[in-house]
Write a protein that binds this DNA or RNA. Structure first.
Lengths: 161, 161
DNA sequence: CCCCTCGCGATACAAACTTGCGCCAACTGA
DNA sequence: TCAGTTGGCGCAAGTTTGTATCGCGAGGGG
């Protein structure tokens, strides 16, 4: 085991460099990655596979521009619940997670209980979503809507080392 | 022009189906995509290329699990500014966008002016970030921190049609 | 001191992508 | 109505890319 100086997760510097490249563009040929990190293509391939199997790489996806597919509106929603009973929270989580308009959902501490990032085609659609997800759930005490005027930055990139 | 019934963007049903697949897994072979949508592999390839060039597909990336690379903490930050002067807002946007810990940044209407999604390794790192991004900027009036206890759902998937 | 294990590099193979070509359908304008 | 034009599809060949196998060298433990 010569994977040296691994601060966490069993990843060495090679893995981190490969991840950084894949995070930016996962269509990069393995040979090119190998050249960039001074490793052979098969070695790169083995490391990628290992990271996919271990879940370090959770998915390989295409990022779609919401504006270009008729979904120009992003809203952030803060939600406060009545009761923090586990079953009720789980039900809320499940309903949020099941909605395709909900890109992201975080259960948080602080003045709110949930924060949602939602993509919709129109405010009418958002209004319909509020009925379906919020007003229909008696455990939701109130929610606060913040409409995004500018999507300054939107990604899932994780800083590496 | 037989691209029929295109509600927006010049995309037909084939394109949308292809997008739906690529959004879930962009390593899917084109041949397999072709079989799924009843098109030949080259046709799929042409459509993908066109969508990449037109920006419908903004990027092809690997999604990295933050937990697995030593960044277990996600926080949502709401920021209120003093002045809405354009140059000051742009400066703030630029500073947020430049920070690698900031995954997402939205400029919003409502009680807050910005919403940030931030990934950090520890609260100490977050504290350092607040100094660097918030306290160092006199135009930031106040900020509210919501620490995520559960990342219920986190993606960039856009609902299609 | 030797053996065992593990990872890397090189090569060979298989699969996927990419390109060029001919065909067909739909739109345009006379 | 009909010819011209445009744009997309499928097929097949060429090329790139990904994948498996082998042997080698470097630690670690018996």
């Amino acid at each position: 085991m010569n994977r040296q100086a691994t601060p966490s997760g069993g990843l060495d510097d090679f893995d981190l460099k490969i991840l950084a490249i894949l995070q930016r563009d996962n269509a990069t040929p393995q040979r090119e990655i190998g050249k960039a990190v001074n490793l052979s293509a098969p070695a790169v391939q083995r490391r990628i596979r290992r990271m996919e199997e271990s879940g370090v790489i959770a998915a390989n996806v295409a990022v779609v521009d919401p504006d270009k597919v008729g979904r120009p509106i992003t809203v952030i929603v803060e939600i406060a619940v009545e009761s923090e009973r586990v079953d009720l929270l789980d039900a809320a989580k499940a309903s949020f997670a099941a909605a395709p308009e909900v890109q992201q959902c975080y259960y948080v501490t602080g003045e709110a209980d949930f924060v949602l990032v939602v993509t919709v085609a129109s405010m009418a659609e958002y209004e319909a979503l509020t009925r379906r997800l919020f007003f229909a759930n008696p455990n939701i005490r109130r929610f606060r809507t913040l409409v995004a005027m500018d999507r300054v930055k939107a990604g899932l990139t994780v800083p590496l080392a």
